[in-house]
Every structure is written in structure tokens, then in C-alpha cells.
Write a protein that binds this DNA or RNA. Structure first.
Lengths: 101, 101
DNA sequence: ACGATAGGCAAGCGATCACTTGCCTGTCAA
DNA sequence: TTGACAGGCAAGTGATCGCTTGCCTATCGT
């Protein structure tokens, strides 16, 4: 039962899984990667997940607004969007720690 | 089965729960709050959780290094520590977004 | 046209999570 | 010293999570 929602629940829960974090890492390098591309990249970095598993992870990331999905022919291209992370960067910092912009 | 761990798994999983995030919010205001103090503060902000539930949440936060617990008489005092969040603030930002320190 | 490629849908399963419940321990004030 | 206060421990439960499985759809090259 979710009594209070700070409006960022989907973002935080999306970040809670190491495979999803690895997917974000992979997407920092380049936008527009396909599902298969990300699958092989995950396999290269030691993440052994099936295509369906990775697809579901990307769905969660997309629902959180961290990844945008666009279709191009039979390809599903993924773009990273870090704007949902920005408010997260200042939260829980005390005034004296907010020395950046 | 956790194949890859980026070394921050406990931190991210600790942040995945809205009650735990609310506890961090409460601790930003002041260090050294007791369990009961945090319980009433949670109740005031609309989080309806039992003492045991909140205690368990604080344990998770402590395991992640986000909260430090010290004993004083029959009180259990909690201090916030945001240093585990610092590496998190730069991850997934593209080079052109890293304009702060 | 047809096989291969890229991806989608949904049911099911085991593991984990958040929480409750019941009882116990330690500390303080009177 | 004794009762109230602050917290601890651990088993149990229902819900959610991550993932698999099996099958289906759509798009491309030849």
C-alpha cells in the first residue's frame, strides 16, 4: 500500500535493479541502440539475461521516463533521458552541501 | 542471482522504498532523532507504518550506509550520511551535463 | 513469396519484500 | 524496586519482482 508518493517512485524503483542500472550505463555511451544491441552489450559486460528479461527491464525504465523508445522499421531504438534524475541529485543534500549550481 | 554488482546495490535498493525516502527526508532536518521521534514524524507526514516497520526500514538504510545509528541510554539515535549518494549524482550524466564540480 | 530477423504478449514460477504479530530486553523515573 | 518507556528479535504472511516459457506478429533481404 503506497500511502505517500513523492512523485518519483517509478524512477527509484527502476534504479533498484542492477541489470537496469547496467542498461543505463550502456545507453550513456550512445543513443538509439536496439534491443538486440543492448542484449549483446549486456552479455559482454557479464550480465546474463534473456532478450525478454532485458525487454522487460527496458519497459520499466521507459515507464520511469529514463528511456525513450522509438520505432524504426523492425527495430526498437532506445534513447537515454536523465532528466528524471536531476531532482534526485539535490534531494537529501543539506544546504551546506549544495555548492553546485 | 546477482551477477553484476556495481557496488551500490544496497544504496539503490534502500532508496527504492517511499517510506525509506521519507525517513531520509525527515533526517535531513535534524540528526540524532530517535526511533519514536521518527515514527511520530512519519505519522504526521501521512506515512502510516508501525514502529517495527520503521525500525526495519532504518536497518536497511543503515546497512546501505545512508544512516548511522548510535546508542544513548535507552534511545537509538539516527544520523544521516549522504556520502553514499555522491557517486550516484554523477553517474549517467553525459560529459556535457557534468558542468558542476 | 518465403525464410530469417527483430521484437511482442501473457501466463506461470520461485524468490524477495514490506509488514504484522507476539513476546522479550534494557533503561529510566518515582 | 517497580512500572512505564524505548527498543529488539524472529516467525509468518500476502504481495510484488525478476525471469522463464511458449507462442505470435511484423519487417527485412533475397
Amino acid at each position: 500500500m503506497l500511502v505517500v508518493d513523492d512523485g518519483q517512485d517509478e524512477v527509484f524503483r527502476a534504479l533498484a535493479d542492477p541489470t537496469r542500472r547496467a542498461l543505463l550505463d550502456a545507453l550513456v555511451a550512445r543513443d538509439g541502440q536496439t534491443l538486440f544491441e543492448l542484449c549483446t552489450r549486456m552479455a559482454d559486460t557479464g550480465v546474463t539475461s534473456s532478450r525478454q528479461a532485458i525487454s522487460q527491464h527496458l519497459d520499466v525504465l521507459a515507464a520511469a521516463g529514463l528511456v525513450h523508445v522509438r520505432r524504426q522499421g523492425r527495430y526498437r531504438l532506445h534513447d537515454l533521458d536523465t532528466t528524471p534524475l536531476l531532482p534526485l541529485r539535490r534531494r537529501w543534500l543539506r544546504p551546506d552541501e549544495r555548492t553546485d549550481r
